[in-house]
Write a protein that binds this DNA or RNA. Sequence first.
DNA 1: TAAATAGTTCGTGCTACACGAACGATCGAT
DNA 2: ATCGATCGTTCGTGTAGCACGAACTATTTA
Lengths: 157, 157
Amino acid sequence: MPAEPADERRSGPLLQHLARRMRLRSESVLTPLGLRVRHLVALTVLRDSGDISQQGLAGTLQIDGTNVVGLLNDLESAGLVERRRSPTDRRRHVVSLTGAGATRIREAECALADAEDEVLGALAPDERELLYDLLRRASQGCAPTCTEAATESPDAC
Amino acid sequence: MPAEPADERRSGPLLQHLARRMRLRSESVLTPLGLRVRHLVALTVLRDSGDISQQGLAGTLQIDGTNVVGLLNDLESAGLVERRRSPTDRRRHVVSLTGAGATRIREAECALADAEDEVLGALAPDERELLYDLLRRASQGCAPTCTEAATESPDAC
DNA sequence: TAAATAGTTCGTGCTACACGAACGATCGAT
DNA sequence: ATCGATCGTTCGTGTAGCACGAACTATTTA
């Protein structure tokens, strides 16, 4: 047998696992704030990527455009985001975070402290910060639409 | 207003976001291997945490015990895991990864290379390795059952 | 003017799960 | 030896998240 038993460890399954645990923990905490997890995900994306069209948001969140409508209806009726018509293309809506939205995100993040403590309890504070930084950069890296990368597939496995 | 606008950045939403992207990307790749994402998550947990009861697996995966049965039925009929009665408590099933299961994980991880490249494309190879290490340690940290921590809630936010 | 595009609304269907009930096998306590 | 609790199993039911398609309006582009 070969010495190395194929060191092909992928983050995918671990990401799924931790995300599930985090989601279950977060839901009960977020409910009193009138938010679902997906709302907070959308708000966070919006905060990190700035103004964006609904189509762009659908691409980033990887959800169907028709479902973006309902998601934004929730957030807009709560005053957390704003839909303005794009001046350059009046078909488009430019979605942006409001001041209230930014505040609500901070409140939610604060409320999530316990959930994060439970799920990431094994990590030291500086490690959690490192994790956050990696996740944020990975998230922004494929922000606009990764879908365009579907063509290239240099599978050298 | 205070100088610091509350630097309460949480990893939760980013975890959800990236996990979703990763899951969507992974599904099509895993299908030819006869696996769903949740199967690979279970196998990975099983590999990392060693033998475990079904109840313990339900706690770690945070899914209902009745659904663990079906999940393990899939994996066992594919020869990837084994159910043996515990010698100390014959009510229990001790679930363990088989050699074929370990092999299949490696195959799956290999096949997931493209998906990971797309989702984590913004990270350098050593950063991805770092991310994997953090995720794995966080995952193992709350392995047995975090549920016991539900009682304590020293919310000092 | 015609065709394509962004967003909206509605309906349909699928999948993942939670949850409860009922059952057999087994353990623990009495 | 008996009884209640526990583990795993099977079945059924319900719900939530989403994808997908159709039809429509407003707008841009060819």
